[in-house]
Write a protein that binds this DNA or RNA. Structure first.
Lengths: 233, 233
DNA sequence: CGAGAAATTGAAAAGATTCAACTCTCGTGG
DNA sequence: CCACGAGAGTTGAATCTTTTCAATTTCTCG
């Protein structure tokens, strides 16, 4: 078996500072996996067996309440680590990971985490920088949920998606995977009805264009105004 | 100068796994500081010069929006690290730290962070476990803000404070530092008016007792019911 | 004791949800 | 190839929670 090609991960921030030989060693422990849209990579509460890096596609990280309501904690894009419960000192996954589109990922056994970070210190350092960034993101979201109303929160959520996964088209910037009103609602703590109304209003204004499981941002600039609007039109 | 006594920090989780001699070395770089109630330890946006461990008192970590609204990100209790921007790969503080009561803390220069974690690996490991825990907490809060209404959020916030800093009294469990309705509002994303009404209702029910800058939880059990209530009484 | 901060409370208004009905879109199978 | 059905989206009306506005009241510290 010819092993995986180091160029797969060589350019990812998570693996920066590693030599080609080290990458090869690392890949020796990795297992490539494919997930079709809607497939569950791991479920909240599961024993954490692996950590992952996303090579292609988009992953939705979801937390469910005891009452069954879902909240989308974040979207993972290509190159990002996910399922890193081991690095956080947890033995079960605190959230579920679902393929938002066709996905390819590499998985390492969690049992190897300590060994790998000991052998490749920059892997640990990079990971913790990632975790630090996510903590900032989470706090930002708490602030948004505390101080903004739905329209602004939806605007911020869309802008984040545009930056993270936007794909330029003739019309504007399109979110690069199927996303429903319900998904946006679960990202912003609103109902799909309210989200629908907000998007509808923006569409009339020519700021976005919607579609079944599609959102195209026509004017990111004007969307930013909506995101920052302290009241008024 | 006789140096600080290792017993100050020997029992704190952040320093577990360190030898007495190592603690002494560590303390050699630390500077003890006192802050009076309301004093600012560091301000959001400041160049991050130090990281801290709290030896006595309570610290409020606050994020402000451009519009001047404040959100309390978390309370730091005795033994916890704070201001660890360095560990998160940030050069400025993402939030302000304010003494919620008379405080004593130790400060280390951030410049020493890399050196110290290199010399004392368990310090790094402990810190990252802390950060991981805080990421979980932040996500939990996002979920609460998304799915619960004000009364439940206030109940959860109080229960967290009780667990973290509760002091048993004849009447019940008292939050161990001065806390206003406004503070609780900033923890829960509500207005002080709504918080006041909620607390007032609970007081009539005998679940809590309020006072100027004081909250005593008389029946944590019944408060927990409020926190979990999916609608109804 | 007085003054300012903190807390309470009623009434009106706003924002979002809930409920309900209806429409549109797309993929599948006859 | 077209019809059908389920999932996705839209939209009006009623309702509800929370905020906003505006007074007051209460407390505590100096």
């Amino acid at each position: 078996m010819p092993g995986l090609d180091p160029s797969l991960i060589a350019d990812l921030p998570s693996f920066s500072g590693l030599e080609r030989r080290e990458l090869e060693t690392l890949l020796g422990y990795a297992q490539p996996l494919r997930f079709s849209e809607g497939a569950t990579v791991f479920a909240q509460g599961d024993e954490a067996e692996s950590f992952y890096v996303l090579l292609d596609g988009h992953i939705r990280v979801v937390r469910s309440t005891p009452e069954g309501q879902q909240v989308i904690v974040r979207y993972i894009s290509v190159g990002e680590l996910f399922g890193i419960a081991a690095a956080l000192g947890r033995s079960t996954y605190p959230a579920s990971a679902v393929a938002a589109a066709e996905c390819v990922a590499l998985a390492w056994p969690n049992a190897k985490w300590d060994e790998l970070t000991a052998r490749f210190p920059s892997l640990g350092a990079n990971t913790y920088k990632t975790v630090g960034g996510r903590l900032q993101d989470a706090h930002t979201r708490v602030v948004e949920m505390s101080t903004e109303q739905v329209e602004q929160r939806v605007a911020h959520a869309l802008l984040r998606l545009v930056k993270q996964t936007g794909r330029k088209t003739a019309e504007g910037v399109e979110i690069d995977f199927p996303i429903t009103r319900q998904d946006i609602a679960e990202m912003t703590g609103a109902t799909l009805h309210t989200v629908s109304r907000v998007l509808q209003a923006w569409e009339k204004d020519g700021i976005v264009r919607g579609g079944r499981k599609r959102v195209v941002v026509i004017s990111p600039h004007r969307l930013l105004l909506k995101a920052e609007a302290r009241k008024e039109s």
